[in-house]
Design a protein around this nucleic acid. Structure first.
Length: 422
RNA sequence: GGUGAGGUGGAUGAGUGGCUGAAAUCAGUAGUUUGCUAAACUGCCGUACGGGUAACUCUGUACCGAGGGUUCGAAUCCCUCCCUCACCGCCA
């Protein structure tokens, strides 16, 4: 969440930035500042009275020790009165603080200066794009190919669980494992530390990375234990650093993890969800960085190049989008999406989203580092997919299909143990 | 799931209801001494939100797992919850 001090110091600028994200209630900024004023006023009042109470209580102790009972009793009465007068202040302070918090979490992160204006995916800016390949002959979409080569059984998944929970079989399962292995190796070679996190998280964690309260309906929830199934390993990975103060030499933190991801995707339908295009359970390899505040945009650039080279190594056609204000996530300051071209479906499929959250997450995480002057500063957090599996698999199958089988890119041969799926 | 023991600052670990935001030790850090290393000695060494200041300094409040309660006063007493450890049960 945003820092009240920033709202206070750069009020007009904050409102301009919020407008880029199509945020419709700029008046909340003023409300928050007013609530914060009220909070300060109440706290000052509370502190002053509490100080009197503390001092008098000590005094009572001394009076008792010297046997000065009468004076002690008199003071006790005073303290009791002060305490009573404290009650309404306490109550109002708690209410104000709650209201402040509740309002503050309604504000999305501020988009960086690079973010284009816009309201929907149409307005995203294409940063780079490779050429779209054209396939000749009788090309099949991946949901036909997975049937033909017995790689994935969607109906079986529906029987066991429901739609959106595919069953990978035989070489389909192996290809999936191959990709995970390759992605993890690629990430660790670039200095990302491999992690296997929990796949369920508690409410504090879901709040700290911004899934709550914004995306509550998107996550599966285990009511018995109050756990959320992770929608991405970003959540447990970033929460490793919740409530921590790092030394500057510990930065940057670079982590990678494979995990299944669970998303309810309520309201999705049609060809968007056909085959592997959108699932309730999918696999993803994620990268996360925790960095010093003034280094986060360099880190974002580095992550962008990292993911781009990975896609190039898979020989997939791709494009990079800079998301416009309206299409960005609530918590992001700048997001680049990677899309691969799916030649049989003739459409772009999102396979990675790389974002800088600046201090929006770390302010909730309370993750700070000591700078040179010994002051605690909020870190900046970033994450990206490297990469999401299902759509990569869809594009690999579709783009590389031939009459005699599917040709895998060379980087996967040693992992898969074969060059072709037939 | 059952029974028992616990949860104190970066770590270890004291703490009789007022003199404890918290002993001591270790780690860390700055300095003194020293031919180097080491050792010794000295200082510093939690976080958040406020007030005051040009700034260093100063100052108020809160926090000893979390939340309530008793009390003039709670790390210390009571209740609830969470977590850790040990043993038992169950089990990949």
């Amino acid at each position: 969440m945003l820092q009240v001090n920033v709202l206070r110091q750069k009020t007009e600028w904050v409102k301009e930035r919020l407008a880029v994200k199509n945020f419709k209630q700029p008046e909340l900024v003023d409300e928050i500042i007013a609530l914060d004023d009220e909070r300060k006023r109440l706290q000052a009042e509370f502190d002053a009275t509490q100080a009197k109470i503390n001092a008098s209580s000590k005094q009572i102790g001394k009076l008792m020790a010297t046997g000065n009972k009468e004076e002690a009793e008199q003071l006790k009465a005073d303290v009791t009165n002060w305490k009573a007068s404290l009650e309404p202040i306490k109550k109002r302070a708690a209410e104000t603080e709650k209201k402040l918090e509740d309002t503050l979490v309604l504000l999305p992160n501020l988009p960086s200066e690079k973010v284009p204006k816009g309201v929907s995916a149409e307005d995203n800016e294409v940063v780079r794009t490779t050429e779209k390949p054209t396939l000749n002959g009788n090309v099949l979409p991946h949901w036909e190919l997975t049937k033909k080569y017995k790689l994935i059984d969607f109906d079986l998944g529906t029987k066991i669980t429901g739609s959106g929970f595919p069953v990978y079989t035989g070489k389909g399962a192996k290809l999936q494992r191959t990709l995970i292995q390759y992605f993890l190796d690629y990430n660790t070679a670039a200095g990302y530390k491999e992690i296997i996190p929990p796949f369920l998280v508690n409410e504090d964690s879901a709040f700290a990375t911004g899934q709550l309260p914004d995306k509550e309906g998107q996550m599966y929830f285990v009511n018995e234990d109050k756990f959320y199934l992770i929608p991405t390993s970003e959540v447990p990975l970033t929460n490793i650093y919740r409530d921590t103060i790092l030394k500057v030499e510990e930065l940057p933190v670079k982590m990678t993890a494979y995990s299944p991801c669970f998303r309810r995707e309520a309201g999705s339908y049609g060809k968007d969800v056909r085959g592997l295009n959108r699932l309730h359970q999918f696999e993803k390899v994620e990268i996360v960085q925790v960095v010093e505040a003034d280094k986060s945009y360099a880190a974002l650039e580095e992550m962008l190049n990292h993911v781009e080279r990975l896609l190039q190594s898979l020989k997939l056609p791709y494009r990079i989008l800079r998301l416009c204000g309206g299409d960005m996530s609530f918590t992001s300051a700048l997001t680049y999406d990677f899309e691969v071209y799916s030649a049989a479906q003739e459409r772009w499929l999102e396979v990675s989203s790389v974002s800088n959250f600046e201090s929006y997450q770390s302010n909730r995480l309370k993750c700070r580092y000591k700078d040179e002057s010994g002051k605690n500063q909020l870190v900046h957090t970033l994450n990206g997919s490297s990469l999401a599996l299902p759509r990569i698999m869809a594009a690999l199958l579709e783009n590389n299909q031939t009459e005699n089988g599917i040709n895998l890119p060379e980087v996967l041969w040693k992992y898969f143990g074969d060059e072709v799926i037939d």
